[in-house]
């Protein structure tokens, strides 16, 4: 006869604990679209003379329709068109002079669905991310994530992300 304590039930106890943690916890999936809001100021922003060719105005209305520079567009086409606008490969006179000067201006109604708004914002960010990745490939022959911080900064400074948000208009507010 051995005098050891029977450890056979240890597994059961551990399983019980395991199942308890499995049930009571949720795997943290905290990811999201990072945005930097502009500083608040009481005074109206200073008037800036912007060449209209450098401004890419995006309007999302309360019917969740997209108006880009006065023309309707589907969300699926937004990313590629934004990329063309920023990079302006054909040097067209109605698109940005250079990526440094390009400004994306986004405006929404109060009745715009959050889902649509985030989708639009996401597409605009995707356009920049793709441009950065392409630039990283062309310049350093590496993926953006493989570059050092200074190299990444160099690329992001060459194509700065400028998304300005206007105050929303009051259309379609839920009563």
């Amino acid at each position: 006869m051995s005098n050891e304590i029977n450890a056979g039930s240890m597994a059961d106890i551990a399983f019980l604990l395991l199942i308890f943690f499995l049930v009571t916890t949720t795997i943290a999936e905290d990811k999201g679209v990072l945005v930097k809001l502009p500083q608040w100021s009481e005074e109206p922003p200073p008037e800036m003379k912007l060449n209209s060719r450098n401004v890419y105005s995006v309007l999302v209305n309360a019917q969740n329709q997209l108006l880009i520079r006065g023309e309707q567009m589907k969300i699926e086409d937004l990313k590629n068109n934004t990329k063309i606008f920023i990079a302006n490969p054909d040097k067209r006179s109605d698109m940005s002079e250079n990526p440094q000067k390009a400004i994306i201006s986004i405006k929404n109604d109060r009745g715009t669905k959050y889902k649509t708004y985030l989708e639009v914002y996401n597409e605009l960010k995707a356009a920049y991310n793709e441009l950065w990745e392409e630039a990283a490939m062309a310049k350093f022959g590496k993926n953006l994530t493989e570059l050092t911080n200074t190299q990444q900064k160099e690329i992001k400074d060459a194509i700065p992300l400028v998304i300005s948000e206007a105050e929303p208009t009051k259309f379609g507010e839920e009563k």
């Binding site: 999201g32 930097k36 502009p38 109060r110 929303p168 507010e173």
Partner: peptide, 24 residues
């Protein structure tokens, strides 16, 4: 809808909390 989000954003900006992450 964006109305309430706009109000939250304004409030965050007034409070000086500018880094925002839209969870997705």
């Amino acid at each position: 809808t964006m109305g309430i989000i706009g109000d939250v954003k304004t409030s965050l900006r007034k409070a000086g909390q500018l880094k925002v992450n839209y969870s997705a």
